[in-house]
Design a protein around this nucleic acid. Sequence first.
DNA 1: TTTTGAGTTGTTCGA
DNA 2: GTCGAACAACTCAAA
Length: 480
Amino acid sequence: MLTLLWFSRDLRLTDNPALAAAIVRGGPIVPVFVLDDVDAGEWAPGGASRWWLHGSLRALDDSLRQRGVALVLRRGPAEIEINQLLDQTGADAVYWNRRYEPWATARGERLKTALRNRGIEARSFNSALIREPWTVTTQKGEPYRVFTPFWKALRATGVSEPAAAAPKQIPGPATAPESEPLSSWALRPTAPDWAGGMQAMWMPGEAGAQARLDDFAAGAASDYRDTRNMPGVAGTSRLSPHLHFGEIGPRQIWRSITAQALARTGNPMPSGVETYLSEIAWREFSYHLLFHFPTLPEAPLRPEFARFPWADDAKGLAAWQRGLTGYPIVDAGMRELWSTGWMHNRVRMIVASFLIKDLLLDWRAGETWFWDTLVDADLASNAASWQWVAGCGADAAPYFRVFNPSLQGAKFDPKGDYVRRWVPEIGKLPNSLLHSPWEARPIELADAGIHLGRTYLAPIVEHGGARQRALEAFKRIKKG
DNA sequence: TTTTGAGTTGTTCGA
DNA sequence: GTCGAACAACTCAAA
């Protein structure tokens, strides 16, 4: 009686229902991770995600070894690898936690049927969501398409059951099946090694996730409503990559944050905490949308957007990607992304609005870039968020909402800490000009050591005109 | 069935 | 300088 425990993308030992069930079942456990690029197709993890995955797998393997068993690594289509492992180990059960990407859902169903037909016990569990997509419906039994009622439904459920603790010991097999060496997967960049900024900022793995959560719950969570929009302040949890890789689950976060708020204030959900948990709910809502509308990553949810006149502007796209648009807050964000694999949420909205509305470029170009460069790249959140900014999503921004990059910069980075960090070449400008250097007089530019067009770019588009162009384009598809 | 109220994150313009 | 209206209409969720 041996259980194959397939870590699908739930790289943790605490609050892991499949692991807990495998322990209860008794007998030796073979933990396995499959690098399943083939299954994921064009949505196989991008460069930044692969860097993260390397660290997370190493951390998971360390934790497992401390408990008496080693992680088995295999590469290929998951169904084939799991069948091979069944033959090699003689396992009579496979347990795993579910995923919700369209390709993964289909794969899970196929696998479960095939295993059961062979007489293998196949069980899957929920580790990644507070509520799985098919369990949340309107009173008419339909999926939600608007966030607020979805959030109310989720909040009414809450999270009650305690998390399973990580087992102290995990019984392993007499002889472990062969594992591919992690290094052979070449998940980390070598020439050039662009991951230095990520190394400095992140600690992939369950311990790193727990440390971030503890830090946030004890500190910034209570001020979250006020500081979350300030990219120069550490006001957000930065848990997104840990959540993506399942190093921590949303239910652990919910429990921990509300318990600490209750102990501190007598109220489990003061306004900062409620605002934060609503962001966790946005993640859930994204999964809900992806599950019920599986073309979310590829096609606009609102059909009229199929005829949107997107621009063909390779130069504009490249300038945006490199952080060379001449708009300081946009360039700061894109450079933060390139360097650290992450970008502050407020700035994500600003750069996305700029790509879509100022450059009039297809939101899918931004989605693809984020997919490759974000350590937290997540099919559901990424697709849902880009569609939201573009206005073609389920609960979309009105078309006339066009962010003004200099106003946004002045409002949310008033002291300029963020822009000065990532765009140091204009750092000597006074705050009043930092977010709109093109408005500086020649003497002010000279004082700051700036030659516009040489040491820093002049804006690649003029925002006022670009805004008008976008409003007209969006208006046109409305009329049909 | 019909009605009603509401819908993450903004900007500009004119009084 | 401040403030409210306009920007658009439509769809969703629930009573």
